[in-house]
């Protein structure tokens, strides 16, 4: 089952209005994504890391998430120093290592993790349902918001159907191996998952139509941002301004 473990909790971040968090995350991400300064990237990484700590995520889950993202940056560390070129090159045994490449890999790693921390602290602390409604309130076209909410909901359905079929196969003694039988079975499983999810989606759609659905999801809880939300937003915008201003000092 797909869970939203980071959305459970009751810290300062969990209580904030989703719209406020979306704007804050967009501002900080924009600064971090566009910067080419080491100082901005590392300060940003430290600041967002502090925000993340304040949202009190479960350490083991957090490490796994950070780990899976950094698997990609690991590839940059492996490839960029060898392929980047430039003037500053250090020979290390038989390898020519580009210092510029190392620098770029480090910068990208800092930026990636800064943005990741920011998203984990600000966005992962809301449920996807709230994010969808928040985005719609912020002016994202209704169709896109609907698409986001329903793609997410449909993931569960597909996942469930797949698990059900896989269980059925396993119960009848199916053990994957490197054989034509295995590949054929998996292609049947995938094909059936697709067909069954499609059918189920259609029935869910019917159920929605029967209950008066007309293309717009109306959220039940629509809290208005309170004073603390605005103060939080100002704080977050100040952080992004500070980050953006560092190169000018």
């Amino acid at each position: 089952m797909i869970e939203e473990p980071f959305a459970e909790g009751n810290t300062l971040f969990h209580r904030r209005d989703t719209r406020v968090k979306l704007i804050a995350a967009a501002a900080i991400t924009l600064v971090l994504a566009l910067t080419s300064s080491f100082l901005v990237a590392s300060t940003g990484c430290i600041l967002t890391g502090m925000l993340l700590a304040l949202s009190r995520p479960t350490p083991s889950l957090l490490l796994r998430r950070i780990g899976s993202v950094n698997l990609f940056t690991l590839f940059l560390w492996l490839t960029l120093p060898l392929t980047y070129g430039g003037d500053k090159i250090v020979s290390f045994f038989f390898l020519d290592i580009s210092l510029d490449g190392l620098r770029t890999a480090a910068l990208i790693t800092l930026k990636t993790n800064g943005i990741l921390f920011c998203f984990l602290a600000l966005l992962a602390t809301s449920t996807v349902a709230n994010l969808g409604h928040g985005l719609e309130k912020l002016g994202m076209p209704r169709k896109l918001a609907f698409l986001l909410l329903f793609s997410y909901r449909q993931l569960f359905v597909i996942h469930q159907e797949y698990q059900r079929l896989q269980r059925a196969a396993r119960l009848r003694g199916f053990a994957p191996s490197n054989s034509l039988h295995t590949y054929r079975t998996y292609s049947y499983l995938f094909g059936m998952t697709l067909v069954k999810s499609w059918n189920r989606a259609e029935r869910v759609h019917q159920a929605m139509i029967l209950r008066g659905f007309n293309g717009r999801l109306i959220p039940l809880n629509q809290p208005q941002p309170c004073r603390e939300d605005y103060l939080f937003l100002i704080g977050m915008l100040l952080i992004s301004l500070l980050l953006a201003g560092i190169p000018f000092f």
């Binding site: 029935r203 159920a207 209950r211 659905f213 109306i218 039940l220």
Partner: peptide
């Protein structure tokens, strides 16, 4: 096939809201 909202309350309220 009939329950598609995350929580029971949201699902029961879906019809009246519509």
């Amino acid at each position: 096939d009939q329950l598609f909202s995350p929580t029971v309350l949201e699902d029961v309220a879906f019809g009246p809201l519509n």
